[in-house]
Every structure is written in structure tokens, then in C-alpha cells.
Simulated assay, not measured.
Amino acid sequence: ANMDRIPVGIPEPLIVGRGIDDVAIVVVTLTPAPKAAARYSSADLTRLAHELQVEVAKLPDIGLTYIVGEQPEEIQVEPDP
């Protein structure tokens, strides 16, 4: 309905149909309480999110589960000359 409002030079938008199964029904955000924030790193929350994902996927009638914003694990090696 608004094709005439698209600026010159912008390609035509791609419109993809979605079904009810393509829409998130539940979104869970993990964040520590303010008093406990210093005890939990983003890696801790990512690890917890993966554990939670495994347990949720075990439930009956669960569709696709995914994690957004996870932090990859990393290690720091400091040589001791």
C-alpha cells in the first residue's frame, strides 16, 4: 500500500509469509538481580541459557528453541616467563 513512499534507489522490499508457528510464543530474558550482578558474567548467563534450552526442549509439544545474544566462551592464557 505504501510502495509510492519508498525512496528512489531503495530496492523493492521482500515480503515473506509467516505462519503461526513462525512467531515466538514465549521469550525468556536472563539477567541477574542487581545485588548479584557482580557474581554472574555474560558467559555464566549463556551457559545457564543453554542448560535451560536443553530442559525446555525435553517438554512435549515444544517447537524450535533458540538463543539470541549469547556470548561465546573464551579463555585467556597468560604466559609465565
Results as ranks from 00 to 15, higher is better:
residue 1 A to N: 08
residue 2 N to H: 09
residue 2 N to W: 02
residue 2 N to T: 06
residue 4 D to W: 04
residue 5 R to A: 09
residue 5 R to L: 05
residue 10 I to Y: 00
residue 10 I to K: 00
residue 12 E to I: 04
residue 13 P to K: 01
residue 13 P to E: 02
residue 15 I to D: 02
residue 15 I to R: 02
residue 22 D to L: 01
residue 22 D to Q: 08
residue 24 A to P: 07
residue 27 V to Q: 13
residue 27 V to K: 13
residue 28 V to R: 11
residue 29 T to M: 08
residue 30 L to I: 10
residue 30 L to N: 07
residue 31 T to G: 14
residue 32 P to S: 05
residue 33 A to Y: 08
residue 34 P to H: 01
residue 36 A to F: 09
residue 36 A to D: 15
residue 36 A to N: 13
residue 37 A to P: 00
residue 41 S to I: 06
residue 41 S to C: 05
residue 42 S to I: 05
residue 44 D to W: 03
residue 44 D to K: 04
residue 45 L to G: 03
residue 46 T to Y: 07
residue 47 R to N: 11
residue 49 A to T: 03
residue 50 H to S: 10
residue 53 Q to M: 11
residue 53 Q to P: 00
residue 54 V to A: 13
residue 54 V to Q: 12
residue 55 E to R: 14
residue 55 E to Y: 01
residue 56 V to D: 06
residue 56 V to P: 00
residue 58 K to F: 01
residue 60 P to S: 06
residue 60 P to Q: 06
residue 62 I to K: 02
residue 63 G to L: 03
residue 63 G to T: 04
residue 63 G to S: 04
residue 65 T to F: 07
residue 66 Y to I: 02
residue 66 Y to N: 11
residue 68 V to K: 15
residue 68 V to M: 10
residue 70 E to T: 14
residue 71 Q to E: 14
residue 72 P to S: 13
residue 73 E to N: 15
residue 73 E to D: 15
residue 75 I to Y: 02
residue 75 I to P: 00
residue 75 I to K: 02
residue 77 V to F: 05
residue 78 E to D: 12
residue 79 P to D: 08
residue 79 P to H: 08
